[in-house]
Design a protein around this nucleic acid. Structure first.
Lengths: 316, 316
DNA sequence: TTGTATGCGTTATCAG
DNA sequence: CTGATAACGCATACAA
């Protein structure tokens, strides 16, 4: 193993100069800096993460906390997770996955990335003595990363109108959470701007729930209706209902989903959807948390990323 | 932060006795052991993982390497990953996710869990200087964990016959990998035992591929045929084909999938499938790797876990 | 600007 | 069986 000392010897300086060259390069003269860098390159030096962690009183570990029931959103989180992992690994950080909130104190960590948080969970967070970043909008001032949910449904609604659907209905998730309100607002504002009447239904995030909503209210959905949905799962259920009614997709009825992870592609027909930049969000989550750790907890603010419309087979 | 010294003081012993009480309890007298344990409890002592890693020349980090294209199997790996994470966290280990094999040398680690390995990848492994465990059968003597693939398809085939399907066809994955051979063998041996004629088709692991296979060979599948599949993805495609042919599922045609992760449940109708114990396999992978690290690379052998038949709506 | 000494928390070695 | 000491690799405080 190559250590600081080895590099120091190679460069004919002291260990400290090498250490400084890495952590505070501005404190060392350009000549020495170059010498040190050459020596590091030559010896393929890589800092020992454990030693660094020990002296800095860190663990170099971040916990990824999933509060939501994993089963309902699996593929979605997979992308987020790989994004987080990439962001962390760059900085020599590693990951622990926790689904049981009680497990948090059981091993060391430097901070948390929290997903699937609901209003009811916010109390927990105030007890944390480590920095954390939420994945998902909140109105409590916690740092977070999310898709621009409102923009997403604006894009979806606008597209439905442009494609000539005469009625656009919103099928949302029946949760009282900021991200859902944002999505509904995106739909509402676009419809109002177009001076179109609005119709909103809500269902739990299961395909058979949204299917039921459509079947139960079938008489309210004339031909040439497009369903703008709060998730791809809901979109899938709506497609089931439409298939059962033996109507034509996308000619007679349109469907636009939200998420764009996995489900949209394994569905038949494939779903036109609002795709979230899941991987990128994960990477940004990691960057923000690492930054927050470095700055001993300084607020990092809110980041909203642009979703993109992906046109497939459920819109004309 | 509570350290060894604090515990030592509390128990009126030296640091070393505390350290030994933790790592080599058999080397310390029962009386002292109890004293130490009480002190640890009282002070809520938790070993500093970084310090431990430093002195043991470890990183306490394991890399989870996904060689297969993530997109094709996402939800499947999610469960595996959470299982791995649980196994690691128990031992204060953390995780790094890598999809690009070139990233392996870039940061420290104590070992690897490798998924999606194909014959072509085996050369890479011999270059590793750290312990690793494969997820997935192999015939090269590498330690691995997998489902009992042969048993899985035996169960599926047997069930299809029991339920009175007169023809049972196997639709497998067109990869030349041990797990696939095992699955085919499970089907073949069961059919031969029942003195039934066999029929095998293979397709890439995409729903539209298996759909095509069924449609292209439709005349070879009389009523009362059950399709036993190498994956749920293939099963989904077969269902699409059957729906297109407007035949009755499960009365006229049956379908049995393989995997039992996510897809089987979001499909409509829901798929009868062979469910792999994915989470458990992940946990065992972690345990085996940690053990192998502890024993400086000693072979851990092979572990096959029993899959389970989950009856849903695609079999009568 | 650079170097020296010291300590982070733990474990192995060796002496008692 | 138990304890004192040194060492792991790095970074901070202080001295030069």
């Amino acid at each position: 193993m190559v250590t600081l000392s080895d590099v120091a010897k190679e460069a004919n300086v002291s260990k400290m100069t090498v250490s400084r060259a890495i952590n505070h390069p501005e404190q060392v003269t350009p000549e020495l800096l170059e010498l040190v860098e050459k020596a590091m390159d030559k010896l393929h030096y890589r800092p020992n993460s454990a030693a660094r962690a020990l002296v800095n009183n860190r663990t170099n570990v971040v916990k990824f906390i999933t509060l939501e029931d994993i089963d309902t959103t699996e593929p979605y989180y997979m992308n987020l997770l790989f994004g987080v992992a990439r962001g962390l690994t760059k900085e020599q950080y590693a990951l622990q996955l926790v689904t049981d909130i009680g497990d948090i104190g059981k091993s060391g960590d430097d901070g948390y990335i929290i997903t699937g948080a609901r209003q009811a969970d916010y109390d927990l967070f105030d007890a944390f003595d480590k920095p954390f970043i939420l994945y998902g909008e909140n109105r409590h001032g916690y740092d977070y990363v999310d898709t621009d949910n409102s923009l997403g449904e604006k894009i979806a609604t606008k597209y439905a109108l442009e494609r000539g659907y005469e009625h656009v209905v919103f099928i949302g998730l029946d949760v009282k959470e900021p991200f859902e309100y944002s999505r509904e607002n995106g739909y509402l504002s676009t419809m109002q701007q177009a001076q179109m009447p609005t119709q909103i239904y809500r269902a739990a995030n299961h395909s058979h729930q949204s299917k039921k909503v459509v079947l139960d209210n079938w008489e309210k959905f004339p031909q040439n209706t497009c369903f703008v949905c709060g998730s791809d799962r809901l979109a899938v259920g709506i497609i089931w209902a439409l298939l059962e009614k033996q109507v034509k997709i996308p000619e007679e009825y349109g469907v636009i989903g939200f998420d764009g992870v996995f489900l949209d592609q394994v569905s038949n027909p494939k779903i036109t959807t609002i795709k979230q930049p899941t991987f990128e969000m994960g990477e940004i989550l990691a960057q923000m948390l690492l930054q927050k750790i470095k700055l001993s907890g300084a607020p990092q603010g809110e980041v909203l990323l642009e979703p993109k419309l992906v046109v497939r087979d459920t819109t004309k």
